[in-house]
Simulated assay, not measured.
Amino acid sequence: MTKSRSHQTQLLDNDTVAAWIFLTPALILLGLFIIWPIAYLFYLSFTAGSFTSKGTYLVGLKNYWRLLFNADFWQVLGNTAYFTIATVIPSLIIPLGLAVLLNRSLALRGVLRSAYFLPSIISLVAAGLGFRWLFQTTGPVNSFLNIFGIPSIPWLGDTFWAMPVLILLSIWKQLGFNMVVFLAGLQAIPPSRYEAAELDGANGWQQFWHITLPGLRSTLIFAIVTTAIFTLRSFEQVYVITGGGPLNTTNLLVYYIYQEAFGQFDFGYAAAAATVLLAVTLVFVYLQLRTWGEES
């Protein structure tokens, strides 16, 4: 008995050592490219100065106090919240509806899936330049509106319309990816569930609510989290199309961090704003996972 336990312990130790050996390269890369940058960012948020011969020095919570009492930061935070909510909700509802329709169409599923997915592989910079051309004052969108007697709208120069252009681009960019994800989730639901529901007299809406949505729970979690992260880190749209204007109404948090770090060279303040962005993202992901996990 003692010999058998000793052998099992030795085997367990060998397996543990082997596991650590195989995990070590991944852990090193994780530490170098994720954990260390995050830790250095957090440290940098408590400093001021620049990366010159003078160097940086600790200032405590000064950068966070500046954020707290900076009206521009709160405007940017509001812009980011508006942009995120207005992008995430349509980026989930529209692809889900398209996926349900495509799942019933076997003939054109492959062609339409490729067509809808195409925007996802296009560079955001190229897409941004395309949208900037479409929505300029003398662009095709206004030319089309003029046909119906609608006067030209200064899309990119108006404080009300500039943000919807960015939102439309982000939805268009994310739509195909989410649709493919939802389509894969739908195909994993057993057809027998729908057949049984039809025999019980359930209509299409009842089948969608009681079979499709519960069957897509894990897929929805993935889509919500990835879409929210994609939206919160948005930078290219603002940089290419509006530059944060007009009157700071399209300035998002990532672009604001870029301006403060590489425009004003205020790296400590930018690091504090980036830390806030990281915290908001982590809290959002945690709440989503906890909420959907409790419902499952």
Rank of each mutant, 00 (worst) to 15 (best):
P154I: 12
P154A: 15
P154K: 09
W155L: 06
W155N: 04
W155D: 09
L156G: 03
L156D: 09
L156N: 10
L156V: 09
L156F: 03
L156R: 10
L156T: 11
L156I: 02
L156C: 12
L156A: 10
G157K: 14
G157I: 02
G157Y: 09
G157P: 08
G157A: 14
D158V: 08
D158K: 11
D158T: 12
D158A: 06
T159Y: 01
T159A: 07
T159N: 04
F160I: 11
F160S: 15
F160L: 12
F160V: 14
M163K: 11
M163Y: 03
M163C: 11
P164K: 05
V165N: 05
V165F: 02
L166Y: 10
L166S: 01
L166M: 10
L166T: 02
L166H: 05
I167N: 01
I167D: 01
I167E: 06
I167Q: 11
L168T: 03
L168N: 00
L168W: 00
L169E: 05
L169K: 12
S170Q: 04
S170K: 00
S170N: 08
S170P: 03
I171Y: 09
I171G: 04
W172I: 02
W172Y: 12
W172N: 11
K173M: 10
K173L: 02
K173W: 12
K173A: 04
K173N: 10
K173G: 06
Q174N: 06
Q174G: 00
L175I: 02
L175V: 00
L175A: 04
L175C: 03
G176Y: 02
G176S: 10
G176Q: 03
G176R: 02
F177R: 03
F177V: 09
N178K: 05
N178C: 13
N178W: 07
N178M: 05
N178Q: 10
N178H: 10
N178G: 09
M179D: 04
M179Q: 15
V180W: 11
V180S: 08
V180Q: 03
V181G: 05
V181F: 09
V181A: 08
V181T: 13
V181R: 02
F182S: 11
F182V: 01
F182N: 06
L183N: 07
A184L: 08
G185W: 13
G185N: 13
G185C: 11
L186I: 13
L186M: 14
Q187V: 07
Q187P: 05
Q187A: 13
A188F: 06
A188S: 12
A188G: 04
I189F: 13
P190V: 05
P190S: 11
P190Y: 03
P190I: 07
P191M: 15
P191D: 13
P191R: 15
P191I: 13
P191N: 09
P191Q: 10
P191W: 12
P191H: 12
S192M: 00
S192W: 00
S192D: 04
S192P: 00
S192T: 12
R193M: 15
R193K: 13
Y194H: 15
Y194K: 11
Y194C: 12
Y194G: 03
E195W: 10
